[in-house]
Design a protein around this nucleic acid. Structure first.
Lengths: 213, 213
DNA sequence: ACCTGAACACCGTTCAAGT
DNA sequence: ACCTGAACACCGTTCAAGT
């Protein structure tokens, strides 16, 4: 009663925005497993439970991070004159985007946002495939096959990157027991050049799907 | 002193084998994240610390599990008469093996065992590619491209499977905003038939890599 | 509206002590 | 040789209480 004057609202210790930014930094530095509510609180100089007031819980926080990352992705634009070159430019662009956000693929898939995330590139690919003269199921297959190929390639690549040392490397194994063709053994004893392999395999796939040469 | 007679060794409460078997069951049922040392101990009716005596720690336990799984994989054998068919049979077999052991890919990659795991299929593929007339870098590229394609496809597939619901499905998104070609929109509004997509894309890729038609 | 500490139910791991 | 409980340093989350 009486002197219940409107207290001036004290400046909040943290904001939802600050939590999201700190979380993004943690994920980029230490991966998703490195994001803990307690580390987050310590980083922000606040009690753990404050985080919960702003973002609900860890799962909701990750949901929000993924949404922001997906919306922050640059749109892909095809370049080149013929359909094969244009589809390849989209594939290369998609690979670059995925590689630039290494935590994203896993997070997106766990959250069931894959269709939403890949719809823009799907539309762009669909336009090029249609321009190449395909339609209906044939066109949808070509688009999806290209997407699966690119996304899958990056997943394999990423796993290979993150692997610690590769105890017996493929090189060692081929040198220990060579194939009949020594040239082939030597080729396998050379480490994978991911950029070249991506270019070779994607071009082969896309040409075949579009029925060019 | 004195009566220090050789105590008859009491039957151990658990064995290394029993720990490994229980751990395998836990991983198959609940995934890698579901494998906890305490659950394991509870399941075996023993103190947590006994587990440590037998297998060292969680990481070493997972190492051992992966080794066993990799060695337990069936060897792939090519079937069919022409090179394309034989390579495709290997690709299909590899996909089947990977799908049958859904936890394996991730575990293997984290442990740096990818080369060792995929060497057998790499050798089998190399033999077929050589029979098709390729050699050197060209042959190695064809083999690796096929492996990346298959492994990547399974990773994408697996992620799609594990996803909860896919909030706005690709079907919804295409129906909400159709493409210029209504037949194409309808094709995209149909859920992916993974078996067919794998067959179509892998055949296109392999034919192109082998230079057949 | 926003922050706090206490508490609960989980983790992996180490260690000294038992038999 | 094998098992034990106590202890430590971590988790995510809930809740009642403060201002």
């Amino acid at each position: 009663m009486s002197q219940e004057a409107a207290r001036p609202p004290r400046a909040p210790a943290v904001s939802r925005r600050a939590v999201l930014d700190a979380a993004t930094r943690l994920v980029e530095d230490q991966g998703v497993a490195g994001l803990s509510m307690r580390k987050l609180a310590a980083e922000l100089g606040v009690a753990v439970t404050s985080i919960y007031w702003h973002v609900g819980n860890r799962e909701a926080l990750l949901d929000e991070l993924v949404q922001e990352m997906v919306h922050g992705l640059d749109a892909l634009a095809a370049t080149g004159s013929d359909p094969v070159a244009r589809v390849l430019s989209l594939a290369t662009g998609l690979r670059r985007v995925l590689r630039d956000h290494p935590h994203l693929i896993g997070l997106v898939n766990e959250r069931g946002l894959t269709p939403a995330m890949f719809l823009p590139s799907q539309r762009a690919l669909a336009a090029e495939v249609a321009a190449a003269g395909l339609s209906g199921t044939r066109a949808a297959d070509a688009v999806r096959a290209t997407q699966y190929h690119v996304i899958g390639f990056v997943l394999v690549e990423r796993n290979t990157d993150r692997s610690p040392e590769q105890r017996p490397s493929a090189e060692d194994l081929w040198l220990a027991e060579p194939a009949a063709d020594p040239v082939l053994s030597e080729a396998f004893a050379t480490p994978v050049d991911a950029d070249r392999l991506f270019a070779v395999s994607t071009e082969a796939l896309v040409r075949a799907l579009l029925g060019k040469q």
